[in-house]
Design a protein around this nucleic acid. Structure first.
Lengths: 201, 201
DNA sequence: AAATGAACAAAAACTGATTATTGTTCAATA
DNA sequence: TATTGAACAATAATCAGTTTTTGTTCATTT
């Protein structure tokens, strides 16, 4: 039963107005007070609904928090997708993703949370599941790049996706790892090199 | 004055027997009780020395903890270096580093700490400074690979180092990022592809 | 010169009693 | 049928008082 709810949650029905109201209230509460100080009672008060309804849709507090961040991530991916449509090459797309990712981290909810509960943010950033959820984002772009012969058609899509993801994640959470990659130009030049030919050619 | 001590510490004189004794005692205490419950008094008791001596060599508790982990990292890098001498190619070396790094994390002091204070471990793993300290490790190996024409002689050493580091760190802290890279063979094959030609050729 | 150990105020950790929150159930309501 | 709101035990957060630890100083020892 709780499992069934979790499964229902995994296919997260954001169009259900009750789910949306709960997530809205929870997100607002987290932005104001942080995760630690977000209480189910407060969420109910803010969302003008009953605690019972929250527990019906989200099994427990952890699931609710996860729901909030999944929706935020979904939003981030949608905004990123929109940005990428304006970009011609895979290198441009990846560059834009990194810049956008850094911006989101430095200005979004994470920046606020990092001040009051940095350990929580660190733990989320080290959770591979957090990133794996956005793996499906890349394959279409990789196929496009292959069709335009920007990258080799022989490369396995799973490998390419993994590689792209690792580069993106690494560049977002570690802006400087020896070589300073602080601006679009530097990032793009770096990515062109490693995507085109690694350390060869 | 504290700055001077810190600077002295940065050039960390492990051969100074007093420094070694302090670090030994601190490391032992951390292994037993964790960082949070490590106290300067306990370190003094274990090392059979005075609290004053600890504060003479390490400005505060934070500096002492950092000292312990720097020495551990130094040891890790030395052991890694020894392992790499047996490897022929840059791909082999990087593969070995990843395997060794994962092993160290899963079996070493971090594994123990992760159980009692996971947030601390997460915070350390997200600290870019932690990795930047080992940047100097790679340039010689990159030069070697260039001399043997394994990788292009045209590639900037700083870029190559950054790239190698990002791959190593990413593969160690995120064993699975979509494509499972759980064994030596899979890791090596993956690295051969991305090092040799990125997503091109 | 460096290490010790005692003294000290300020900061942090601990403790136990109190209060708030969680997660569950269920009858009433819309 | 979904939501509500009340009741409830179990768990977790809070708080004020107490103890421990930190970081500093300095006279004494090695």
């Amino acid at each position: 039963m709780t499992v069934a709810q979790d499964e229902q949650f995994n296919t997260a029905n954001y169009s259900d107005p009750m789910v949306a109201r709960i997530l809205d209230a929870a997100e607002q509460t987290i932005r104001r007070f942080g995760i630690r100080r977000m209480s189910m009672g407060e969420v109910a008060r803010i969302g003008k609904l009953s605690r019972g309804s929250i527990y019906r849709h989200f099994g427990d507090k952890e699931a609710l928090v996860e729901g909030v961040f999944r929706r935020l991530q979904q939003g981030f991916l949608n905004r990123t997708e929109a940005l990428l449509e304006k970009q011609q090459t895979l290198v441009d797309k990846l560059t834009e993703s990194v810049v956008h990712g850094r911006q989101d981290i430095n200005e979004g909810i994470f920046a606020a949370l990092a001040e009051t509960e940095p350990e929580t943010v660190a733990t989320m950033f080290l959770d591979a599941g957090f990133y794996k959820r956005s793996v499906a984002f890349w394959p279409p772009h990789i196929k496009m790049a292959q069709e335009k012969a920007e990258i080799s058609a022989d490369v396995d899509t799973a490998l390419a996706t993994d590689f792209i993801m690792r580069l993106a994640v690494s560049l977002v959470i570690f802006p400087d790892m020896g070589k300073p990659l602080n601006n679009r130009r530097a990032i793009k030049s770096y990515l062109r090199q490693v995507l085109d030919s690694g350390l060869g050619a």
